[in-house]
């Protein structure tokens, strides 16, 4: 599996994501410069956390127009695996690859906290190595992580099984609708989540649960 991790000038967790990908047995990973439309033949794309282009306008609003994102959108439409973490999730929503939007947290503050998330739907491309109902310990760190979608969209997400991760009981840090922590597109090949799985891959950090998302991608790819 060859992972590509997008690097915007304001990406913060790009190297963290790169290191997480490299922990997957047999996988390699490289950075993809935002100004370069060439995806260099990678087999999965990770859009990492951070502040892409500063995000002074609206989180992820400008990144969506970058050369690399034009290519990522085509890659996703062709069925390629795309993972958006935190700011990456925000960018994917802005790009229309995922439903909904990420609004400012209910307390309007940045929150950095280890939270429990529950696997709602295992055996998907991004949850292949998980079991339904399994609880993962993964940190969140964001100011705009409150997942929002109109009621009708939420209903169809629930009905179609697009919700992969939910904050565990009493663990919703930001006021997300239906406790949603991570959703896929209808086809299941694009996944966005607010928790940072790349910060739960090293035993010294206290949890390795996040690694399962990266290994799942490798297994899904085959």
């Amino acid at each position: 599996m060859r992972f590509g991790v997008v690097r915007f000038p304001g990406s913060c967790d790009d190297v963290d994501a790169l290191l997480a990908c490299q922990r997957v047995p047999g996988a390699s990973a490289q950075l993809l410069w935002h100004g370069d439309a060439d995806l260099h033949g990678v087999e999965a794309v990770v859009i990492p956390g951070g502040f892409s282009y500063g995000d002074y306008l609206r989180v992820g609003a400008i990144a969506r127009f970058s050369p690399v994102m034009e290519s990522v959108i085509r890659f996703a439409e062709a069925g390629g695996l795309v993972l958006g973490i935190c700011n990456g999730f925000q960018v994917l929503c802005e790009a229309g690859l995922l439903p909904g939007a990420l609004l400012p947290n209910v307390n309007r503050r940045f929150i950095c906290r280890q939270v429990n998330v529950e696997v709602v739907r295992a055996r998907m491309p991004f949850s292949a190595d998980m079991a339904d109902g399994e609880v993962l310990s993964i940190p969140v760190k964001h100011t705009s992580g409150r997942y929002y979608a109109p009621a009708a969209v939420l209903e169809s997400l629930e009905a179609d099984g697009q919700i992969v991760l939910r904050y565990a009981h009493d663990a919703n840090p930001n006021g997300s609708s239906n406790d949603i922590a991570g959703v896929t597109n209808a086809a299941g090949n694009v996944f966005g989540l607010m928790p940072h799985p790349e910060h739960a891959v090293e035993p010294l950090s206290g949890s390795v649960d996040g690694l399962k998302i990266f290994t799942s991608m490798a297994h899904a790819h085959g």
Partner: peptide, 14 residues
Amino acid sequence: LFEQYDSLVQSRTV
């Protein structure tokens, strides 16, 4: 206070 700061980025925090 601390929860308002990212204490994890760069993956060195033990």
